[in-house]
Amino acid sequence: MSAELNHLIVHARDNRESADFLAHILGLETGPEWGPFIPLTTANGVTLDFATVPAESIVLQHYAFLISEEEFDAALARIEGGGTTYFADPHREQPGEINRNDGGRGLYFMDPAGHGMEILTRPYGSHPEPDGD
């Protein structure tokens, strides 16, 4: 059997708030609470297990989600409708804009715990460089 990523533990100030926030943006549903975790399972089966920890214990991470063009439109509408600030770049220098990396679309936003979230419609490196003819 080859190795597959199964789950990640995502530290949050409030596991329910963070899980529900991301589930809403991505159009997913959180799973039932089990132990200290609120799970959110992605389409490829990887689960993000949100766990409440003291704020000073949170080490900020970056999570990127590959979604379809239609899902991007829906997620962007939910982001804008909820008043969430988004950026075209990870350094947060281009607020209210999206990027067109690799011929797709992408954006960055922060979750309630401060983690950097990204949605993109094309994986990095998937768009061939144009020929120099």
Rank of each mutant, 00 (worst) to 15 (best):
M1W: 03
A3L: 11
A3R: 08
E4H: 05
E4N: 12
H7M: 01
L8H: 15
I9P: 00
V10D: 12
V10C: 13
V10S: 05
H11F: 13
R13T: 12
R13P: 00
D14R: 14
N15K: 09
E17W: 03
E17H: 15
S18P: 03
A19T: 01
F21L: 11
A23E: 12
I25Y: 02
I25R: 14
I25N: 10
L28I: 11
L28F: 15
E29K: 11
E33Q: 08
I38M: 14
I38C: 07
A43R: 10
A43S: 14
N44T: 06
N44R: 01
G45Y: 00
V46N: 07
V46Q: 05
V46P: 01
L48M: 13
L48Y: 14
T52C: 00
V53P: 04
V53G: 12
S57K: 07
S57V: 00
S57R: 12
Q61M: 09
Y63S: 04
F65A: 00
L66I: 01
I67P: 02
E69S: 09
E69K: 15
E70P: 02
A74V: 04
A75H: 03
A75V: 14
R78L: 02
I79R: 06
G82H: 14
G82S: 11
F87Y: 15
D89Y: 04
R92T: 11
E93Y: 03
Q94A: 06
P95S: 06
P95Y: 14
G96L: 01
G96E: 14
E97C: 03
E97I: 00
I98E: 02
N99D: 11
R100C: 03
R100I: 01
D102M: 09
G103K: 14
G103E: 00
G104N: 09
G104L: 02
G106L: 07
Y108C: 07
F109K: 07
F109D: 06
M110K: 15
H115G: 11
H115P: 11
I119C: 05
I119G: 15
L120F: 15
T121C: 07
T121A: 08
R122S: 12
S126Q: 13
P128G: 03
P128T: 02
E129H: 12
E129Q: 10
P130S: 08
P130H: 06
P130N: 09
D131E: 09
G132N: 11
